[in-house]
Design a protein around this nucleic acid. Structure first.
Lengths: 333, 333
DNA sequence: ACCGTTCATGCAAACGATTACATTGTGCAG
DNA sequence: CTGCACAATGTAATCGTTTGCATGAACGGT
């Protein structure tokens, strides 16, 4: 570490003023006369001075960073949300700290919520312990939510989104529709299962227990669902499947095609998320589009507003679209 | 901001010792007798004391964070590298700061390299200005590299990787092979074009100017390459295409299929990166696998080693594999 | 009984900025 | 000419830790 980095007192000496004046030039230029201001700025240039953020933060009792807790950094779904968060925070002069909740110890995660570590926290993971987050830095939850935690939430209406998918399939003529969910215990999983059941019920249909597969959002769990589905007699298995994530839908389609069946002729498929690639597969995937970048942006904006004193705790619900592409069609006669 | 957060002096008062002793319990427990140590720990518990990192960092003249500069956070390719970086840094007790180079002003990016902001920097973007990074925090470059910057690099052998792809296609019997590259000015672009040309030359073949498409790694640029390719007379256009990224290969395949042609029957396709989804498309994509997670891990480890005093600046080259799947076959007779 | 070690602890000065308060100088009204 | 308001600057305390140095107690060897 260079020990010779110029500090504010060096600038002060060169400019022939006190450190207070230099500091004022830096953070409140109007308070100093234009003559001195220019002399100080010249001295800053001459010395190559750069502000030490740690010192400023200590004095201001803030850190200038926001931490985002992400369930899985490698998942493109989350990275696009992060991108939205980063855009807003960068503009506002905040640093973005990220931590992968699946690779970090529980204690370390809670420590991120300590003031002194970050000024605020955006949780993209609903499985964080509500109790441990109370009384620490302001929190906003995006996508998922944390039961029992009083924090603004930015998300979509998952039940309604599932309804869109089911209604589309029913309108095409499907009567037996299966669902591949996320892992048990995930709040999205429950909301989307409930939405599926509701929408089916509204049409006088039922989600048979055998047609509900518990997955984990990953490609391979979609493939496993395909194996089970393929093992059922063709006459009685669902003619359409609704997946709680696009990767699962892709895994399913890949496996089904490998067995010589065709999508959508032999089975219709609806995904969830609309990640970029699925529009270019064959068949292109019908799916529910989530405005991921906006979710990130809004979550960051809500958090910044809270840091400025806003106290509203209400949820923000973003609209979703059903994007109809080639993976859905009327069932075979 | 709670003003009543207990500080080290509160703990000291409760425990009946000096602040120095409390500090030693925290960072160097062996220096204090077990009696006092326990008293202090009890006082810490009683007061609910939590260390203020900003203060410690100020004193230690370090920040405890590493910043990663990513060209595009939303790109799954980078997010998996980030995941590797996060894994290593988290374990070592460092924070991971991320910034999106395409959404951040040039000055702001350079500021990240200031000591006081972060202790080190991992650049995933080769277009950062080498001059501006000199004399600041230690840097490691991953995937890409920055010409003129003396920093360890962690990457793959891009020329050799391109060679693997070309050799595979030639071995299948292809004689006219096209290449869709990344954007001009990107170091990977040049290396992969050179590798393609070298490998073709070694087989007595040539990359015709008309068969080199300049893309930008995105899906849509792959689709544009398909439009151009489709417009060429079927008899004389390339029978195989090598892409500098998987998304471009997907965009190409999607467009070609939409026009009723088949992969690999009508054209063989090789991608680059092996992102997770492409194994499940139809046809599954033949591609070059990059060990993304390992690239991230190694880059982080190299940086930590530099922070501990290691001075070696040599490059780390990671092995790549050709993953042969269904998108390549012998050309039609 | 004396003295040099060693061990445990305290005192106070850093780390590098910000800012409440004090001080000085200037202009202007009375 | 006096006094007051205000603008520009300086002085020094502060943010919460860490750590070099000093101190004093305990101990063992002679």
């Amino acid at each position: 570490m260079r020990t010779n980095r110029p500090k504010i007192s060096d600038v002060a000496r060169v400019a022939g003023v006190s450190t207070a004046t230099v500091s004022r030039v830096l953070s409140n230029p109007d308070l100093v006369s234009s003559d001195t201001r220019e002399a100080v700025q010249e001295a800053i240039r001459a010395t190559g001075y750069r502000l030490n953020l740690a010192a400023r933060n200590l004095r201001h009792r803030r850190t200038g960073s926001i931490v985002a807790l992400v369930p899985n950094l490698a998942n493109p779904f989350f990275s696009e949300i992060l991108s939205g968060i980063a855009a807003v925070l960068g503009e506002a002069g905040y640093n973005l700290l990220v931590a992968d909740t699946c690779r970090t110890s529980a204690q370390a995660l809670i420590d991120y919520a300590e003031p002194g570590r970050a000024d605020g926290l955006i949780a993209l993971d609903g499985r964080l312990p509500a109790e441990e987050l109370k009384g620490k830095v302001p929190v906003v939850v995006a996508c998922e939510w944390i039961p029992g935690l009083a924090a603004p939430r930015v998300k979509i209406d998952n039940r309604a989104a599932a309804g869109l998918a089911i209604d589309h399939l029913v309108a095409l003529g499907h009567r037996r529709i299966g669902h591949v969910s996320g892992p048990r215990g995930n709040v999205l999983t429950e909301a989307r299962i409930a939405g599926t059941q509701d929408a089916l019920a509204a049409q006088g249909l039922l989600l048979a227990p055998a047609d509900l597969h518990i997955g984990d959002f990953s490609l391979s769990s979609g493939r496993e669902a395909a194996v089970t589905w393929l093992a059922q007699p063709a006459a009685t298995r669902p003619t359409a499947m609704f997946f709680a994530s696009d990767p699962m839908a892709c895994g399913f389609i890949g496996e089904v095609q490998r067995h010589g069946l065709k999508v959508p002729e032999d089975v219709s498929v609806v995904g969830f998320d609309d990640i970029e690639l699925v529009a270019h597969m064959s068949p292109p995937l019908t799916t529910i589009r989530q405005p991921r970048h906006d979710i990130g942006r809004l979550a960051a904006e809500r958090l910044l507003a809270r840091l400025k004193g806003e106290t509203a705790m209400d949820d923000t619900l973003l609209p979703v679209d059903l994007v109809v592409r080639g993976s859905t069609a009327a069932p075979a006669a």
